[in-house]
Amino acid sequence: MIPDQLTSGQYQTVYNLFSLVIAAQLFTALYLVAAQPRVLARYRQALLVSATVCGIAAYHYFRIFNSFRDSFVTDATGGNGVYTQAPGESFNEGYRYVDWFLTVPLLLVELVVVLALAKKLQTSLLLRLVPASALMILLGYPGEISDSDATRNIFGLLSTIPFLYILFVLFVELTRSLDRQPETVRNTVSKMRILLFATWGVYPIAYLLPLLGFDGATAWVGKQAGYSIADILAKCLYGLLIYRIARLKSFADDPAFALEEGGHEGVDAPRSRVNA
């Protein structure tokens, strides 16, 4: 539940966190676009998807930031007083769910695309991961905006089902498809899956705070902090790891490109050369 008032410290904490997320998402998107020439053409689509994810997140955090500023006001000079909810205004948590509804499926798309799997396998993975991730977000929203513990429990449980299915696909079925990937790519994919699991784990914890007895302004600020930090890790850091995979696969596919980029060390040689 949105608190009726925030202390100056709580307000500044949320204000600065939202500003940090905007900067992180925006400049990560710009970096990924600028980095296109650093990978082979076949892997640039994954970088564009990563940049799109960060761009969508930056846009929605602008909206979240503006909604927050409009929702809490103070009469104190210098911004050192108590911030109360402005008449007729309310912080819009829906912006965050719209962002997740668009970006979470794209996070899974960029992972599958950058691996350049066989067309049939790639299609199979996407047809399972994308609907499951969208369903996970849709089922979580009614509980997020509800004041009823029963409603939060029901929709929290329902949204957990597609979440567990996504983990199964990523950790079990995708693993079977990594045999032909360079060892450095396999290691990076393993780190990415752990990153997704760890950062996505923040969301249900924040979601469950009211059910765990945490309420009021402190719990709300903690939820916003958890969501913000998780969004930076799950989008910006994840996007940079996608870029690393694209670089490693580019080096493995084209030794001349690797030599030109100075990044051939530690990358497996193409299999065609190994078997020659």
Rank of each mutant, 00 (worst) to 15 (best):
R152C: 01
A225I: 10
Y59E: 03
L196Q: 14
E261G: 15
V14N: 09
W220L: 06
T160G: 03
S228K: 04
I205Q: 14
V39W: 00
V130M: 12
C236H: 10
N66Y: 15
V172R: 15
Y11W: 09
T160S: 08
L233R: 11
L108V: 04
L167W: 09
L30T: 14
K120N: 08
G266L: 04
T160R: 01
V53L: 02
G156N: 01
A252I: 04
R273D: 13
N153G: 11
Y11A: 12
Q224N: 13
Q25W: 02
G266R: 10
C54S: 02
S148H: 06
P255C: 06
V104H: 05
T28S: 15
Y59P: 04
G263E: 07
E110H: 07
I2T: 09
L26W: 14
E110C: 13
L20K: 03
D75Q: 14
N92D: 08
L126H: 08
V39D: 03
T84W: 00
I205Y: 10
Y11M: 06
Y243M: 06
L259P: 11
A258I: 10
P182D: 00
F163K: 02
S8N: 11
L32P: 01
N16G: 12
A230L: 05
H264K: 10
R38D: 02
L135K: 00
R44L: 11
R44K: 11
L158K: 05
S148V: 06
I229S: 13
D149Y: 14
F68W: 08
Y83M: 13
A276M: 14
I154T: 06
P270M: 06
L17T: 09
V185E: 03
A51W: 00
D147V: 14
G216F: 02
G79R: 11
S50Q: 08
P270N: 05
D254R: 08
Q36Y: 09
F91Y: 12
I229F: 11
V49H: 04
R96I: 10
R186N: 07
A276R: 15
Y227E: 07
D149F: 09
F68L: 05
G55N: 02
G81C: 12
L6E: 05
N153L: 07
A198P: 00
Q25E: 11
L248Q: 15
F197C: 12
Y165L: 00
T123S: 09
Q12M: 13
F171Q: 07
V202D: 00
P87N: 05
A29E: 04
S124C: 09
A234P: 03
I161D: 04
T77S: 15
P142S: 07
T52H: 01
W200L: 14
E89H: 08
F91I: 00
E265G: 09
L6K: 05
D70V: 00
G79T: 02
V114Y: 01
L107M: 13
S272N: 14
Y61R: 02
T7V: 13
Y43T: 05
D149S: 12
R44G: 07
L111E: 01
L241T: 03
I145V: 15
A34T: 10
V130L: 07
H264E: 15
I194S: 14
S19M: 10
L20Q: 13
K120E: 12
